[in-house]
């Protein structure tokens, strides 16, 4: 098995991996922490990533695959800004539809789509624990709550000047 040259952890990353491993009696338990680290650096988990992480932790690729395929967060679209809109009950009652409409209006995309420049991806999400401050969305895990159309527009304006994913390093997959 060869380790991919495309996505190699820096010495700093490897130190972080060591820190994670120390929390558990087995290397396997460090898997989710390492996958989080990996997604933060390189985006969604690919086959290469699976082999790389397996080797790093002394696991089989199948061990890693069976975990990777289970979780939603390891498969976010490779956009600079990942927008999750909660459409579960409380948000639904309080205007999740408005949030999706406004996003479609300003970004021209709906759930499951990414803007052509790779800056924004929109997804519907399950309850994110902001039911009392609905409607809400999160951008790369940062929560924005009690949304109004104006607040959404202002937020998107603020995010737009960011560099596209290629420059950021998130688009190298």
């Amino acid at each position: 098995m060869t380790v991919s040259n495309e996505t190699v952890f820096t010495p700093e990353d490897l130190a972080a991996v060591e820190e994670i491993r120390k929390r558990y009696p087995t290397a396997q338990a460090a898997l989710m922490g390492v996958l989080h680290l990996y997604t933060r650096r390189f985006g969604p988990i690919t086959e290469k990533a699976i082999r790389h992480v397996a080797e790093l932790l002394g696991l089989t690729p199948e061990d890693v695959l069976s975990v990777v395929t289970f979780y939603e967060m390891y498969h976010r679209p490779p956009a600079r800004w990942n927008i999750l809109v909660c459409t579960n009950v409380s948000c639904r009652l309080c205007g999740a539809g408005m949030v999706l409409e406004t996003l479609r209006d300003v970004l021209g995309i709906g759930p499951g789509e990414t803007t052509p420049d790779g800056l924004f991806a929109v997804q519907e999400a399950e309850c994110l624990g902001s039911c009392g401050t609905a409607p809400m969305l999160s951008v790369n895990e940062e929560y924005h709550e009690r949304l109004t159309p104006d607040a959404i527009r202002a937020l998107i304006e603020r995010l737009k000047p960011a560099s596209p994913p290629d420059a950021w390093g998130g688009g190298s997959r």
Binding site: L93, L100, P111
Partner: peptide, 14 residues
């Protein structure tokens, strides 16, 4: 419906 049509969510396929 208030939240648009209910679609299948990302992740379920995997």
């Amino acid at each position: 419906s208030t939240g648009g049509p209910i679609r299948t969510l990302a992740g379920s396929e995997t």
